[in-house]
Simulated assay, not measured.
Amino acid sequence: MKSVVNITRLGAAALAVAAFSISGHAFAADAVAAEKLARQEGCLRCHGIERGKDGPAYKEVAAKFRGKADAEARLLHHLSSGEKAKFPDGHEEEHKIPKTKDMDQIKNLVQWILSLT
């Protein structure tokens, strides 16, 4: 019985560590809330999670920024500034800015995107 409890504690500790650091990025504290926000804000009209649409897939974005110290800051800037997004056909459009002004929600979204593998 004692070994089962120890194994359970080790498993819980490992999950806790994994939840805070995946591929060098902080894991989204609430992946469900992040995906809900992406749907509400219309992000998933242009971005797929697994496959690109008009914009790159979120997994491609995560791969592009993996290991870069400024990844979160760059994505936060991209989402909040309305800077130009470049499309595969060469045209550019201003990236839509989320309507929510809650930076914690936007940070959670960015962390979720960066956690995708």
Results as ranks from 00 to 15, higher is better:
Gln105Phe: 04
Arg45Ser: 05
Lys59Glu: 10
Ser23Trp: 13
Gly82Ser: 06
Ala13Lys: 13
His25Lys: 13
Ser23Val: 11
Phe27Met: 13
Leu109Thr: 03
Asp89Cys: 00
Ser115Cys: 12
Arg66Ile: 03
Met103Pro: 09
Thr8Arg: 00
Glu50Tyr: 01
Thr100Met: 03
His91Trp: 08
Arg66Thr: 03
Cys46Gly: 00
Glu60Met: 06
His47Phe: 07
Leu116Phe: 02
Ala62Cys: 05
Glu94Met: 04
Ala31Lys: 14
Arg39His: 11
Ala26Leu: 04
Ala13Ser: 13
Gln105Trp: 02
Asp30Cys: 05
Glu60Ala: 14
Ala16Gly: 15
Asp30Gly: 05
Ala26Cys: 01
Leu10His: 09
Glu83Met: 06
Glu83Ile: 07
Glu50His: 05
Gly82Asp: 05
Glu83Asn: 06
Gly42Arg: 09
Ala28His: 05
Ala57Tyr: 01
Leu116Thr: 00
Ala62Arg: 11
Ala62Ser: 14
Leu10Phe: 14
Ala38Phe: 02
Lys64Arg: 10
Ala18Asp: 11
Trp112Ile: 11
Gln40Val: 08
Val17Asn: 03
Lys96Asp: 01
Met103Asn: 13
Lys68Phe: 02
Ala14Thr: 13
Phe65Val: 07
Ala38Thr: 04
His25Asp: 12
Arg9Gly: 02
Phe87Val: 02
Ala26Trp: 03
Val110Asn: 01
Met1Cys: 01
Tyr58Thr: 00
Asp104Met: 11
Val4Phe: 12
Pro88Ser: 13
Glu93Val: 14
Lys107Thr: 15
Ile106Glu: 09
Glu72Pro: 07
Asn108Tyr: 08
Ile106Gln: 10
Asp104Thr: 13
Phe20Cys: 15
Met1Thr: 11
Ser115Met: 13
Arg45Pro: 00
Pro98Val: 12
Val5Phe: 08
His25Gln: 15
Leu109His: 01
Ala12Thr: 12
Leu37Trp: 03
Ser115Asp: 09
Leu15Ser: 10
Val32Gly: 14
Ala13Phe: 13
Ala71Pro: 05
Ala69Thr: 07
Cys43Tyr: 02
Glu72Thr: 08
Gly52Arg: 04
Glu93Thr: 15
Ile97Gln: 06
Ala18Trp: 12
Val17Leu: 15
Ser80Asp: 07
Gly42Ser: 05
Ser80Cys: 12
Trp112Phe: 15
Gly90Ile: 07
Ser21Glu: 02
Asp89Tyr: 03
Asp30Ile: 03
Glu94Phe: 06
Leu79Glu: 05
Phe65Thr: 04
Ser3Lys: 14
